[in-house]
Amino acid sequence: MARMKFICDAERCIECNGCVTACKAEHDIPWGVNRRRVVTMNDGVAGEKSISVACMHCSDAPCMAVCPVNCFYRTDEGVVLHDKDICIGCGYCSYACPFGAPQFPSTGAFGLRGKMDKCTFCAGGPEENGSQAEFEKYGRNRLSEGKLPACAEMCSTKALLAGDGDVVADILRNRVLVRGKGSEVWGWGTAYGKPRDGQPAAGKPDEVKS
């Protein structure tokens, strides 16, 4: 059975927030909750990186470990979901999660607490697949329709990958091998082609020689 995972390629993410918008639109997410968000490190500084963050559906999920009512469960595909009918809104999972995935919905002026909400990998919840009850509580169940999460499908640069963990890991590994690392990723060689057999790169021969 495939183990579903997210991987975000920080070298490709352009901070467009298309994944955030796709998630909110697909599942009719309530105001004040972002199941997915884009985090930028070293914003405005040379070498800044952006990465799309949501529930990573951990193999050893800390949210499951701390929940006092055991409302979290793992599907056969490795997706970590929670049962809102069991959830008591204690917030322990929010403190335990290193990614800040479980969130309280803001339903009033002072952010009244309710049932926790989190990314479902577009896999719905414990209700019948595709039912109205499932959509109202957890959003659309795209996984049962044979589709990948909306956030990954909407990513314009394919920075956000979702699917079988082994497959997406191989995709990222191949990207890294092809593009290199450090200055090789976005540099002179990438823009104008790398020199071969001592010949200058195409495009700016005079500058390459100097």
Rank of each mutant, 00 (worst) to 15 (best):
C19L: 02
G193S: 06
P205S: 02
D60S: 13
L81C: 08
N70S: 12
N34P: 00
D85H: 03
G198N: 07
V38E: 05
C71S: 11
V168T: 09
G100E: 01
L112N: 15
V39W: 11
L161I: 05
P102G: 00
S144W: 08
D206S: 13
S183I: 12
E145Y: 04
K84A: 03
M154T: 13
Q103D: 07
P200E: 01
V176A: 15
V66M: 03
A109N: 11
Y73R: 09
V66C: 02
S210Y: 09
G47K: 04
E15R: 12
E134L: 08
E11R: 14
D28A: 11
M4Y: 13
A201R: 13
N34T: 11
G139W: 03
R35S: 07
R113L: 13
P68I: 05
P195Y: 09
C97F: 00
H82K: 10
D76P: 02
I88Q: 13
A22N: 05
C23A: 03
G108M: 00
G139M: 04
V39S: 09
D83K: 06
P126R: 04
V66N: 07
T40Y: 04
T190H: 10
A25L: 15
W31P: 03
N42Q: 12
R113K: 15
D164L: 05
Y192C: 10
E145H: 07
W31L: 12
W31R: 13
G189D: 12
M4F: 15
G193C: 08
D85L: 10
Y138N: 07
G111Y: 04
D164F: 06
G114M: 05
D43G: 09
A159V: 04
E128F: 04
R35W: 15
N174V: 12
P102R: 05
C67W: 03
C155E: 00
